[in-house]
Nucleic acid binder design. Structure first.
Length: 789
RNA sequence: GCGAGGGUAGCCAAGCCUGGAAACGGCGGCGGACUCAAGAUCCGCUCCCGUAGGGGUCCAAGGGUUCAAAUCCCUUCCCUCGCACCA
């Protein structure tokens, strides 16, 4: 029989499906089943090859555990929460070219289908199961051993009830809090927008400027925006753009002078702003303003380079440490007479301004900005090299600059260590304030200007100390694969602060007590593994009965005995149906292994740890997490927006599932990056074919009953046993590469040796080879599933 | 900048934890067998010099520890990923 993997594979897939081969139910005879999960896919587009290994690795483990006689549950579901799908549908309806070409070029969506994708859930459904590139199709073709009865989407009614229960419980536990948070806000559409909605500035970041509250004799505030608040003692003057429009406004009850644009931004950032008067920047020149930290007065000078659309449009000048300011000051001094003529500022006073150093740094003299400029040969503000000089000096000062004695308690410290404390200190004294700004211009797809707005939001308190402690316990007790990821979890726990857990729109579950908001995707996917265990039978319970009392009984037990300490369960009489489901949940839980990705450690996986730590008892905490690396295509990152992807269907048709699986698992260990290269894949296929031919040959032979074995036969059988051990140990630890290398390539070497040393037509050899084949097929059954079967 | 992971023969890649082989394996290349021929398959070679024994130089670079280092320590250079509200 020739090697025709597609035929064999489809035959076996059909048979597995017909018999419900992978539908797992609690088995009273197996008290310790295996439950394994993988992040549910997000169907905002089709499935591509990059996803294949993600699902194949847990499948291999699932198959391995089954071969070991375990009851194994490997389920899947669909994550549709949030804005990507909604946004994709909107863009599609608008006829957005990028969106259309991404779907057509990367996922081969036919024109006729595009038009039918009109609703978010319709869109999701299409990529879950209808499209040629749908996840379900790809997963089936890959031969994944999934229990399909348990699938759901995160937009389902009962799932929402589950999430509602989770968030009500967390709120009850005091782990949620309300606060203000900066968001992207379109000033044209008057609503928050996401990354996908942006025309320009997708890479822009929020920057937090410190506002130094300089004031004039009337008590009017001139908030000078800076990213380097520690330089406040080095301020020698201020700059405004004489050609720009400024306003005098009442801001939170005070009189402020800022650029016209800044006034609008403050309004978005939760301040009450009333513009009293518009004035020209030129009118401000010459005003003396007092430094709130030193009490010294400085003069406002004109500077064309000041951008009224960046921060407040009023900047302080620190010539000793800012190359820009240094050159601007030089130019102002040279130009002093003209400035006096135009603005009436005393020219001698301008010429008398000298840089004031505030920190000392090795390799530079007293005035680092001057030295940096001299070293780079930059002399004019319009020199393009100025930007780099500035950046280098900022870096150097940040990491190596030590504050001078005038900084009292902060003196002698390195800027990097002290900036934040210094800023907080002066916020408390009232000298400093803050505002948010972008690092670059941001424009909405609608053409509107996007600004940073500060809005009410709900946060999860991941920096709660007790909670952190519990999370660390989970990390300590679980398997981290590979082991070097363990430290990353601990680091993340230390580093996480409050996490905003809601969005203003999108699919998903509404925040129970504030229906205006939707719980965001990384927050509604933290304990859903538990939902798999109950999903099929929960469908039999009417939605209206699936409430808080129901889930309290289900997860916390008939007496509420499994509830977190101090939590009062919501029910009086536990719902019988909930208690039945509880048995199922308890049977499968905890999750033995979650197979996920390295880049999710810093958010999703750590959230997973946190929520389990809080809501469930230690016995139900995560057993282990395997973190996988990413996939490259011919040495480059896969990208569906650039069309740089291979669809599983194409690869599977071309090479067969066994080759695809074998390649994905054998070319690198799961946590290492792998590179899908067509030449390498096709050689893998050749190797499998060679194996198949040999196997056919051996299978066709008449095997003698009890032949005499020679030394070399025993040698081979002994090598076989060693291979069994290596492969088994490797699979136990998700080392799929080691496993397939041992069972396939390394043993092939032994066989080559064996063939050379003996007559393979001997009865003993025939018997041995048959024995070897049968064993190797079992070893390879997890990776190259169907041919082995 | 900070954190994590890497840099091994033309390419991919194992070994490094637990020092003691010119360094598993695959691809590619070369030669041979089979074949009318090609492909597939099988066998051998594939760092440099030498017909071979043998000699020389190697595991990013530079130091160090050691009888002995790809493996341990230090320094430097380079690459990838993460640095949050994005799934």
């Amino acid at each position: 029989m020739d090697y025709e993997p597609q035929d064999v594979e489809s035959k076996w897939r059909q048979r597995w499906a017909d018999r419900g081969r992978y539908e797992a139910d609690p088995d009273p005879g197996d008290a310790d089943p295996t439950f394994i999960t993988v992040p549910y896919p997000y169907p905002s587009g089709g499935m591509h090859l990059g996803h294949c290994r993600t699902y194949t690795v847990p499948d291999v483990y699932a198959r391995y555990r089954r071969l070991q006689g375990d009851t194994v549950l490997f389920p899947i579901a669909w994550h549709v929460t949030g804005t990507p799908i909604v946004g994709a549908v909107e863009r599609l309806k608008e006829g957005d070219e990028d969106q259309i070409s991404s779907l057509q070029d990367a996922f081969n969506v036919p024109e006729s289908d595009l038009q039918s994708l009109e609703t978010p859930m319709g869109f999701a459904r299409y990529f879950i199961e209808e499209a040629d590139s749908s996840y379900k199709r790809g997963m089936r073709q890959l031969g994944l051993s999934i229990d399909w009865r348990r699938e759901f989407t995160t937009n389902d009614d009962r799932y929402s009830k589950f999430i509602t229960w989770q968030y009500e419980t967390l709120k009850e536990r005091g782990l949620l809090e309300k606060g203000l948070h900066p968001v992207d806000f379109c000033t044209n559409e008057l609503q928050p927008v996401t990354d996908h909605d942006l025309l320009e500035g997708e890479d822009a970041e929020h920057q937090e400027f410190t506002l130094v509250r300089f004031s004039d004799d009337d008590g009017t505030i001139y908030p000078m925006a800076t990213l380097r608040p520690e330089t406040v003692r080095g301020v020698t003057n201020a700059f405004v753009n004489p050609g720009a429009t400024y306003v005098r406004a009442t801001v939170d009850g005070e009189r402020w002078i800022v650029s016209e644009q800044a006034a609008g931004k403050f309004e978005l950032q939760d301040r009450s702003v009333t513009v009293e008067e518009r004035l020209s920047g030129a009118d401000l020149v010459g005003t003396a303003v007092d430094n709130p930290v030193t009490g010294e007065a400085v003069t406002i000078l004109p500077a064309e380079f000041v951008d009224p659309d960046n921060a407040t449009g009023v900047v302080m000048s620190v010539p000793a440490h800012s190359p820009d300011d240094y050159l601007a000051l030089e130019e102002a001094r040279a130009d002093a007479d003209r400035i006096e003529a135009d603005y009436g500022v005393d020219a001698d006073a301008i010429r008398a301004i000298d840089p004031v150093p505030i920190l000392a740094i090795d390799d530079y003299g007293e005035i680092p900005a001057r030295d940096a400029l001299a070293a780079a040969g930059v002399e004019r503000t319009d020199d393009p090299a100025l930007g780099e000089v500035t950046e280098d000096l900022y870096q150097a000062e940040f990491h190596n600059g030590r504050l001078l004695d005038s900084y009292d308690e902060f003196a002698g410290e390195v800027v990097a260590d002290v900036r934040e404390r210094f800023r907080e200190h002066h916020r408390e004294t009232g000298a400093f304030d803050r505002m948010y700004e972008y690092t670059e211009e941001v424009v909405c797809r609608c053409g509107g200007d996007v600004e940073v707005s500060v809005q009410d939001t709900w946060f999860i308190r991941y920096n709660d100390e007790d909670w952190q402690e519990k999370a660390r316990e989970v990390v300590e007790g679980m398997d981290a694969i590979p082991e070097n990821t363990r430290k990353q979890y601990d680091d993340t726990i230390d580093w996480l602060e409050e996490w905003p857990c809601i969005r203003n729109y999108g699919l998903g579950t509404r925040l129970p007590w504030d229906e205006e908001f939707v719980i965001e995707p990384l927050s509604d996917s933290t304990i859903y593994m538990a939902y798999y265990t109950i999903a099929p039978r929960l469908r039999e319970v009417p939605v209206e009965d699936v409430d808080r009392e129901f889930f309290d009984a289900l997860f916390f037990g008939p007496e509420g005995e499994a509830a977190p300490e101090g939590y009062d369960v919501a029910f009086d009489d536990p719902d019988e149906r909930a208690l039945e489901l509880r048995e199922e949940w308890e049977y499968w839980y905890p999750v033995d292994y979650r197979c996920s990705a390295t880049d999710l450690i810093r958010n999703h996986l750590t959230f997973y740890i946190y929520h389990h730590a809080e809501l469930f008892e230690p016995g139900n905490w995560p057993g282990g997490i395997t973190s996988m690396g990413l996939g490259l295509l011919e040495g480059e990152k896969m990208s569906s927006s650039k069309g740089h992807v291979v669809l599983p269907g194409k690869a599977l048709d071309e090479y067969g599932a066994d080759t695809v699986r074998f390649f994905l698992l054998n070319s690198a260990e799961p946590w290492q990056d792998y590179d899908w290269r067509a030449d390498a894949v096709s050689s893998a296929r050749d190797q499998l074919e060679r194996f198949w031919d040999r196997a056919q040959d051996i299978a066709d032979r008449e095997v003698p009953d009890d032949p005499a074995l020679s030394g070399v036969d025993r040698w081979l059988l002994s090598r076989l046993q060693a291979t069994v051990e290596t492969t088994t140990d490797a699979l136990e630890n998700f080392e799929t590469r080691t496993a397939s290398q041992a069972a396939f390539y390394n043993f092939e070497e032994d066989l080559r040796w064996y063939r050379r040393r003996t007559d393979t037509d001997r009865p003993g050899a025939v018997w041995t080879l048959r024995r070897v084949l049968e064993t190797r097929l079992r070893l390879l059954a997890t990776t190259s599933t169907t041919s082995s079967t």
